[in-house]
Write a protein that binds this DNA or RNA. Sequence first.
DNA 1: TGCATATTTGCAGAGTGTGCAACGAACTGT
DNA 2: ACAGTTCGTTGCACACTCTGCAAATATGCA
Lengths: 220, 220
Amino acid sequence: MEHEGARAPDGASVAKPEGLRERKRRETREATRRAAIALGLEHGWDAVTVEMICDAAGISPRTFYNYFPSREAAVLGEGKPMPNESQVAAFVAARGVSDVEAFAVMMAEVWTAAEPDRELFRQRRTLLDATPELAAANMMRITEARAQYAGIVRQRLDATRPSLGDADAEIEAAMAVSIAMGALQVMARGWLAGDGEAPLASLIHDYFPRVRRLTQAPSA
Amino acid sequence: MEHEGARAPDGASVAKPEGLRERKRRETREATRRAAIALGLEHGWDAVTVEMICDAAGISPRTFYNYFPSREAAVLGEGKPMPNESQVAAFVAARGVSDVEAFAVMMAEVWTAAEPDRELFRQRRTLLDATPELAAANMMRITEARAQYAGIVRQRLDATRPSLGDADAEIEAAMAVSIAMGALQVMARGWLAGDGEAPLASLIHDYFPRVRRLTQAPSA
DNA sequence: TGCATATTTGCAGAGTGTGCAACGAACTGT
DNA sequence: ACAGTTCGTTGCACACTCTGCAAATATGCA
């Protein structure tokens, strides 16, 4: 399910025949997503109705709800963004950076990878940033996945600080997730303000000294 | 408008006649809020309809929307929670704690003060914690007020670190707000798990060493 | 070609939220 | 106490989101 083109020597490779059905479905979904984002940027998200999106995408309103569970999902994407195994492994093994920073970098990579089209990624982020309603819906998605994220952070904590008690590890994992998400919100805004050349992940390293300073009690 | 009972020597004091109209309005609002929270805890928030709340509160559905702009607002309270002047002054002047920690303490106090009824505060927090939809709506409220919160943090930064450039201060203020809100989310959950004796603000000081550790790069 | 399966669509219905106008209760001065 | 003003309540119509169901349509496969 994850292979792409798999050009094996034998012409009839194993994966991705990509039947007509699947292709049309993917295209329809993509067209709908783009229509939703474009209309949102043009008219403001709360002025965009499902009917408008459907007219632009060439589907009926009822079909829209076969693809997306809500109007917001057309912009946000419906699945919760989850790191794959190698991303988790890199996060757990990362040294020389704080737990929060490492987690933020991983999530930035997950987001970036989930939307290969840079321009669309940027547009979506802009819309999301300008629309509290969408930001809230996005938060909801993340809140629902919070326990799973915390589980990933625990893997790192168990590896780097095995002396930590069970209850403490639980709390610190949840804390790291919440703090990283908060910081990412601001960093994403900073990324939007930039020219879009620097990848989000590198911005994070630039921003993090500030995070350290803001959480540090002055010694004086 | 802000005075309470003001028993001046002369019987006819200046403030708060509290006419019958105002009293009934306050009572109706309170009854509706309590009905919404109780029903949410009993049936789960998404099973609660406006009609149910209205039946319990003894008002018509149309009247509900005269009090609250949305179903969620009945639980969350409609105004954005804002610190008063003395709270801001204390925050700006607080020494020996990090910016994020000081801001978190201030917000905890604002929340606590906004809901004098401890039991109701706890119930609302429980419901909010169990319902991603409500947590998201709450986030939305805060997101809308984010710029104002950042302005308050800037007052502190300008006082404690005047060498900071304008753009940097802007960014760090926004960052402090986001991080504090993230951390508060977890702390509030910890407070819920406790017996409710310790005030939220004191819990924050207990939790903060963890925040410092999680954002600190290991020296090794 | 013809059958099995997946997708699209319309329709009815529940629920949220808003503007408008009528109705009723509370405040005002006399 | 009374008439007039003001404010809160309610019902009604309407737009919009979202769901279940069943009919119509398109695709996949032998």
